[in-house]
Write a protein that binds this DNA or RNA. Sequence first.
DNA 1: ATTTCTGCAAAAGGTTTGCAAAGCG
DNA 2: CGCTTTGCAAACCTTTTGCAGAAAT
Lengths: 141, 141
Amino acid sequence: MNESDKKILHGAGKRITPQRMLILETIRAGQGHLDADEIYRRAKKRAPRLSLSTVYRTINVLKEAGMIEELHLGEEHHHYELKDKTEHHHLICQVCGKVVEFESPFNEQLVHDLGQRYDFEITSVHLDLIGYCAECRSQKT
Amino acid sequence: MNESDKKILHGAGKRITPQRMLILETIRAGQGHLDADEIYRRAKKRAPRLSLSTVYRTINVLKEAGMIEELHLGEEHHHYELKDKTEHHHLICQVCGKVVEFESPFNEQLVHDLGQRYDFEITSVHLDLIGYCAECRSQKT
DNA sequence: ATTTCTGCAAAAGGTTTGCAAAGCG
DNA sequence: CGCTTTGCAAACCTTTTGCAGAAAT
C-alpha cells in the first residue's frame, strides 16, 4: 500500500491497519481474479489470525473509497480489482472461467450518443464477451 | 405458455406442469425485471401453495432448455428474461436500478475480430452501461 | 404404472452483524 | 485516551437438496 493509497483512505476517514494494507496488496497482486474467499486464503498465509469478516469489511471500505471495483463475471462469485487501471473489459471462458482483459473497442462518441438517445448520463461501461477459450475449445469433442 | 414453449420443454424431456406454465408466464410478464423471490411472490398470488424451491428448480429447467436467460445487473440479485427477444443490452441507473434495453451497437465483425485476436470463440456479448437516468439526475443536488 | 415433479423442511454457501478485546491516531 | 477496527461466533439471506406424496405421461 503506497502513500497515495493511504491518503485516499485517510481522506475517507478510515484508519490504516495492517489488515487493510495486506488485503489491498492481495487484491492488487490478484489482478482482478480473486473472490473474497480467495483473498482471505492468500492473505491469511501472511497473517494467520486474519478473519474472513475483516476481508469482507475491508472490501466494503475499499469499495466505498473508490479504490477497488467489484466485478460480476459469469454466474459465480464477485471478483475485485484495483480501480486505477485503464478501462478494459473481459473475455470469459464459459467452461474454465478464465478471464482475459482487453481494451475498450468503442469510442467515446458511440457511448455518448447512446446516453443521449436514452437520456442517461453514462458513468461506466461493462462489456463481457462470453465464449470458449482455446484450450477448452480443443477439448470439446 | 404457448405451443412452441411446450414443444421446447418436451424436447428437453421435461414435463408440462401448471407451476412451470405459471412461472414462465410470470417471467414473461416481468419483462426481465424480476428476481427469484419476486417471481415467487407474484406467481403465488395465482397458486398459493407454490413453493420457492419450485421457482428455483423451474428457473433452472428453463435455463437449461435455453428458454430464459439470467442477468446480473448491478450488484444485486439475478434477474430473468425470456430468450426469444432480439439481442439487446442494458442501460442501468446506478441510483434507482431502472433498466432500459437497447440494441447492439456493434457489428459482428468487431466481435469476431476480438475473438480472433485472443483466440476465443465468442458465444455471447454482455454490455451494460451504468449511469444516471433522467429522473435520478434531476434529483442529484 | 412409471417416472418426474412438487411442497416442505432442513442444509448449504456466501455475506453480514454483535460484542468484547485490541489497536490506530 | 477515545473511537475505530478486529476476531470470533452466531445470524442472515439466497439458493440447493432430501424425501415422501402428488401429478404427468
